[in-house]
């Protein structure tokens, strides 16, 4: 098992944990940050899969714009899930 495979394993595990976190979290702001973490990991995975174009798109959109849109929507509505 090379170090690259270990890196991929760690990234995939982090990604799944972040997804579970953002599904079970009651605080919606933290859930939105969880999706942002998924996007960061996804961007690295795209780079490792030899897709630099897609990695660039995911880094710009998934990390910055998508998160901020969720944050604005949470600010205009409720923060906590009852």
């Amino acid at each position: 098992m090379s170090w690259l495979a270990v890196l991929v394993l760690v990234l995939v595990v982090v990604q799944i944990i972040a997804a579970l976190f953002s599904v079970w979290q009651k605080d919606l702001l933290l859930a939105a940050l969880g999706t942002s973490a998924i996007s960061v990991v996804l961007s690295v995975l795209f780079y490792l899969l030899q897709a630099p174009d897609v990695a660039l798109t995911e880094a710009a959109i998934g990390v910055a714009l998508s998160t901020i849109i969720f944050v604005i929507a949470i600010k205009k509505t409720d923060r906590y899930e009852e």
């Binding site: 953002s22 599904v23 919606l28 999706t35 996007s39 996804l42 899969l49 995911e58 998934g62 899930e81």
Partner: peptide, 26 residues
């Protein structure tokens, strides 16, 4: 989930997963 924002979060996670699946097939 019963919270509308949570449902949108779920949809965006599905979106990420589908994108990763496409790239890894190629």
């Amino acid at each position: 989930k019963k919270n509308l924002l949570k449902i949108v979060v779920g949809l965006s996670i599905v979106d990420s997963g589908v994108n990763l699946l496409f790239i890894s097939v190629g």
